[in-house]
């Protein structure tokens, strides 16, 4: 557009889009300011657009003893970082085998992975829950992590990414006497770095926000993730009060939103790449 004159039609559209952009961000403003309001201030009409007597009470409450918010953050980080690394490793291994290896039942096994891409996890919730329980993984982080690391979309993307890599690279390394493990570690993994970074940020975001499964598996306050904590604060009355204290919930929300927001702004271009890998060529 740049040098051209901006048409009135375009100006109107841009204004509308800007207003929409502000509207989707307003709830976040409401959360941040709300987190500094005492319970009374969250309930007054007309509401305070800006907190008149800002307080850190809500943060003190969720961090200081009543709730282990630090622990929740740590749990969220633990679950999503481990899930991301394990998923990248497993997806690359599977993608590599599907792209470059020959074995019995290859097509069937691959199609099976693709089919599950479309299946909502809620539909198999009970057997999945029972499986995790049988394996003794209920209330453990392993139980929250392992069921999500074979990420069908990731397997598919890695296969697509590795397939066009030249076979000569692998063959000449084999002739030079490199072991299969070495080929995987020193050729396949480094060459897959662009795909891995893009998929990694998406997997991180997905596992950080894998609320349903986390809330089903992690059942003790100490093992909750931040999202499970926020959901509990937002849905339940706490400490004998008969109304919900949205100040606590908003403080929890800020704590949970901050890490992913920072990661998003630092790694925005990887997010864009990770999202568009499957749908847009180029």
């Amino acid at each position: 557009m740049g040098k051209q004159k901006i048409s009135p039609g375009f100006a109107v559209r841009l204004t509308v889009v800007s207003v929409m952009g502000i509207l989707v961000l307003l709830p976040l403003y409401w959360m941040v300011t709300g987190s500094f309001k005492v319970m009374k201030a969250t309930m007054i009409v007309p509401p305070e657009i800006f907190p008149k007597n800002p307080t850190l009470e809500n943060y003190a409450f969720i961090f200081g003893g009543h709730f282990p918010a630090f622990r929740w953050l740590f749990n969220s980080a633990l679950v999503s970082v481990s899930a991301t690394f394990l998923a990248l490793l497993i997806c690359t291994m599977l993608g590599y085998a599907f792209a470059k290896k020959q074995f019995y039942g290859k097509n069937v096994l691959f199609v099976l992975v693709l089919v599950t891409m479309m299946l909502p996890r809620q539909s198999v919730l009970i057997p999945l829950f029972q499986m995790v329980k049988h394996l003794g993984l209920l209330n453990t982080f392993v139980g929250a992590i392992v069921p999500i690391i074979v990420w069908p979309y990731g397997v598919f993307m890695m296969r697509q990414f590795i397939a066009p890599l030249p076979n000569e690279l692998i063959e000449s390394a084999t002739i030079d006497g490199a072991s299969e493990l070495r080929i995987f570690r020193q050729i396949i993994l480094p060459l897959s770095a662009p795909a891995l970074s893009a998929l990694g940020v998406i997997m991180f975001m997905n596992s950080w926000n894998d609320f349903m499964w986390q809330s089903v598996v992690l059942r003790e306050v100490e093992s909750w993730t931040i999202n499970v904590g926020v959901a509990t604060l937002a849905k339940n009355t706490i400490g004998g009060s008969n109304t919900i204290n949205y100040g606590y919930a908003m403080a929890g929300g800020v704590v949970g939103a901050l890490p992913v927001t920072l990661i998003f702004f630092a790694l925005q271009k990887y997010f864009v790449k990770g999202l568009t890998m499957g749908a847009v060529k180029g």
């Binding site: 952009g21 976040l28 975001m205 926000n209 959901a231 992913v260 702004f265 997010f271």
Partner: peptide, 23 residues
């Protein structure tokens, strides 16, 4: 603009829903 519209998506449905519960 992309960042503004995508930010709520990154923060996730749980936190956004918690805010709307109050709104």
């Amino acid at each position: 603009y992309r960042g503004a519209f995508f930010l709520p998506n990154v923060i996730g449905g749980v936190i956004i829903s918690a805010i709307w519960l109050w709104i």
